[in-house]
């Protein structure tokens, strides 16, 4: 099939008694920036390791570019990996690390040195070739790992939480750079992360994993705006669910509904009810969390349950919002932001 980089069919993996991956079907397209998002232990890293060939599946098949590679060794697959802890060879220089894959494949010395230098330039590490990994900072090691994986121009790059060990500023910077790099080289990226914000900012599509299964596959907007299961609704973004009796009294029908906190407005209890096409609920502010640019209100609803509302601090100060604690409010949001979340089968 054309245009399909990876096809997983009913992929399974058990370690003794525990099931890590319980039947995953997935297609990843050529040139896509694809994220596998989920909490730790959800099976996303195991799926990645099976694609790379480090683990052999208990069941199911893996196709890369239409070819069944299920039984092939890692060195027989046109796939390179960026490891979580980078896995740079400590006894080699940066340049030797980057050139290693080329050396293994018998690329002549002058060519592989030139390509290693170019790859280091791509990740903005010119002039670091002679250093040892131990002499680099975490962010620099990360770039070396990236250069080492990219220099052989694989069809597919696997990234196993590569930004997890970096501090926040550097992580945000690397997110932008990674995305730009991916667009530039045009290689399919499969990116494993537990950070929903990271997945939302970088990906073309996201697969949300839980308990060894894929809960939902879709674009960031689809996953965020139309969560397919309560798990996706709570894992991607802030959990804000209405269920049971509260749902019946506010929305009018039973079921589970998700409303994103930034869609909800916090109004004085006296105003705001009865606006057309809007839903509203009265309640008491249980907690106010001042976040600098915005404020998070935790409101216990009269109808039961609790909703979180996020408000920009356009004109309010920390003192203003603190005064809300314990007061009566009315929450209001447009009806189209009430998203029905199907219960899991």
């Amino acid at each position: 099939m054309e245009g399909i980089a990876i096809r997983l069919r009913d992929l399974r993996k058990s370690f003794g008694e525990t099931t890590a991956v319980a039947g995953v079907d997935l297609e990843i397209r050529d040139g896509e920036f694809f994220s596998m998002l989920g909490p730790s232990g959800s099976g996303k890293t195991t799926v990645l390791r099976m694609i790379a060939g480090f683990e052999s599946p208990t069941g199911g098949t893996i196709e890369l570019a239409g070819q069944d590679v299920t039984g092939l060794a890692p060195f027989e697959r046109d796939v390179h990996t960026v490891f979580q802890d980078y896995a740079l060879f400590p006894h080699m220089t940066v340049e030797q690390n980057v050139a290693y894959g080329l050396k293994v494949r018998g690329v002549p010395k002058s060519e592989r040195l030139a390509r290693a230098r170019q790859a280091l330039a791509e990740v903005r590490l010119e002039g670091y070739g002679a250093r040892r990994p131990a002499q680099l900072s975490g962010g620099q090691r990360q770039r070396v790992a990236l250069a080492r994986a990219l220099v052989g121009r694989p069809r597919l790059l696997l990234l196993d939480e590569p930004l997890g060990a970096l501090d926040l500023k550097l992580r945000e910077q690397m997110q932008v750079e990674l995305k730009a790099l991916q667009r530039e080289v045009g290689i399919t990226f499969v990116f494993v992360t537990h950070d929903q914000e990271e997945a939302l900012t970088m990906s073309d599509r996201i697969a949300v994993f839980d308990q060894g299964r894929i809960q939902q596959v879709g674009t960031p907007a689809e996953v965020y705006e139309r969560p397919a299961t309560p798990f996706v609704a709570s894992f991607v973004g802030t959990s804000n669910l209405l269920a049971g009796e509260a749902a019946e009294r506010i929305v009018g029908t039973t079921g589970t509904y998700s409303i994103r906190p930034e869609k909800i407005r916090v109004l004085k209890d006296s105003e705001g009810a009865g606006e057309p096409d809007h839903e509203s609920a009265a309640g008491t502010v249980a907690e106010v969390v001042y976040l600098g640019d915005s404020t998070r209100f935790l409101v216990d609803l009269d109808a039961g349950g609790r909703l979180t509302a996020l408000q920009q601090n356009l004109e309010t100060s920390a003192e203003d919002v603190a005064a809300y604690r314990g007061s009566r409010v009315r929450l209001r949001w447009h009806r189209r932001h009430t998203v029905h979340v199907p219960d899991p089968r």
Binding site: F54, A73, P74, F75, H80, T81, A87, L88, R105, G152
Partner: peptide
């Protein structure tokens, strides 16, 4: 580290 052996195989060795 087992990761280094994985990395080596991953790069074609």
């Amino acid at each position: 580290p087992a990761n280094l052996l994985d990395a080596s195989a991953d790069l074609g060795a």
